[in-house]
Computed example of a mutant assay.
Amino acid sequence: MFVKLWMTSNVLTVTSDQPIVEVERIMRENRIRRVPVVDDGKVVGIISKEDLFRAMPSIFDPSVSPENLEHASRIEAGAIMTRSPVTVDPSTPLEQAALLMRTHKFGSLLVMQDEQLVGIITETNIFDAFLEVLGARKQGARIEIKIDRKPASFYAMLQVFKKCEMTVLGITVFSDYSEEHQLVTLKVQGDNMDRLIDNLWDAGLQINRMHTEEPDSEP
C-alpha cells in the first residue's frame, strides 16, 4: 500500500504571518491536531497543538498578566512553527512512512508532489490502514496458522483456502515467530469452515489459534 491511498487530501493550511490565536481557532473548529504553514504556495513549516500549548498562556492561569496575554495574541505562526518539516511523496510505501513517524516520533508527515502540498498522512491514517489490512471492520473468522519457512508451504496453505471457497479479508505474516516457523494470520469468510479446518490439518498445516465472531459482535 502507498501513502496516496490513505493520506488526507484538501489539507487546511495557514500562513506564517497569521496570529497563533487564529491558528488555534482554525485547528479547534476543524478538530485537527496539526496544520501546515504555507506562504505563496510553498510549505515553510508545520504547527502542532503542542506548539500552540507551549506558546499560548492560559487565560485561566492567575499568574499570567493581561499584558502577557495581549502579547501572546500578537505572536505569529512563523515564530512557533517547525521549519523544514520531513515530507514524503504519494508513492512512498505506507510502511516506510510509518517507520519514519515511529523513528522520529512524528504524529504526521506532509505529502509533497512536484514541490506542492497534496496531502498529509497521520497516525490515524496509519491506524485505519492497519485495521483494513487485518479486516477488522468485517465479520469473519480469524485463523492463526503455523507453517515452516518453505515457500511451497505458504502456497499450499493458500490452495486450501481456494479449494474450500473461502474469501480472504485480511492476511498478515509474522516471519520471526520462531527459527523454524512463521505465523500467518488470516481473516476469512465462507460457509465451509469445518471443511477448511479438516483440509488444513490434512495438508499438514498446524492451526495455532482460531476465533469466530458472533453475528452481532464488534471487531
Rank of each mutant, 00 (worst) to 15 (best):
F154S: 02
G190V: 06
K163I: 02
I171D: 06
F161L: 15
G140E: 03
I171T: 11
D148H: 13
Q159F: 09
L183N: 01
V184S: 01
V184P: 00
T185F: 03
T172M: 13
Q139R: 14
M157K: 04
P151H: 08
K187E: 01
K146C: 08
G190I: 08
T172W: 09
D194P: 00
F174V: 13
L183K: 04
L183Q: 03
L186N: 02
K138G: 05
G140T: 09
H181K: 12
Y155W: 06
V168F: 05
Q189K: 10
Q139C: 03
T185I: 07
K150Y: 08
Q139A: 11
Y177T: 01
L169V: 13
K146L: 15
I147N: 08
L158V: 05
Q159K: 13
I171A: 13
T185M: 07
V160W: 01
Q189I: 03
G190P: 01
G190R: 03
Q159C: 00
L183V: 03
A152F: 05
D176H: 09
A152I: 07
M166L: 13
T185D: 02
K138N: 10
V188N: 03
I171E: 04
D191N: 11
E165T: 03
L186M: 14
R149L: 13
D176E: 12
E179F: 14
T172V: 15
S153V: 12
V173N: 15
S178V: 07
E180K: 15
D176G: 09
K162W: 07
E165D: 13
H181R: 11
C164F: 01
V168G: 04
D148Y: 10
Q139Y: 11
R149Q: 12
L158Y: 00
M193A: 02
D194Q: 11
T167I: 13
I143M: 14
T167D: 12
V160A: 01
M193L: 11
N192V: 00
I147D: 06
Q159E: 10
D194N: 12
V184Y: 00
D191C: 00
Y155K: 07
D194F: 11
F154H: 04
Q139I: 10
K162M: 05
L186V: 14
N192P: 00
K138T: 13
G140M: 08
P151M: 04
G190L: 08
Q189P: 00
K162N: 06
K138Y: 13
G190H: 04
D191E: 10
M166T: 09
L186C: 09
F154N: 04
Q189L: 06
L158T: 07
F161N: 01
L186T: 09
H181N: 15
I143P: 13
T167H: 12
I143W: 10
P151T: 06
A156G: 09
C164R: 04
M166N: 07
H181W: 11
F161P: 01
C164D: 01
S153A: 14
E179C: 07
E165Y: 09
V188P: 02
I147P: 03
I147M: 14
V184H: 02
M166P: 02
F174M: 10
R142D: 11
R149A: 07
Q182C: 03
T167Q: 12
L183R: 02
V168R: 00
E179N: 10
H181P: 01
I171G: 05
D176P: 05
E144M: 15
E180A: 15
G170Y: 08
I147F: 10
K146M: 12
S153E: 14
I145A: 11
C164W: 02
V168W: 03
F174G: 07
F161H: 01
F174N: 12
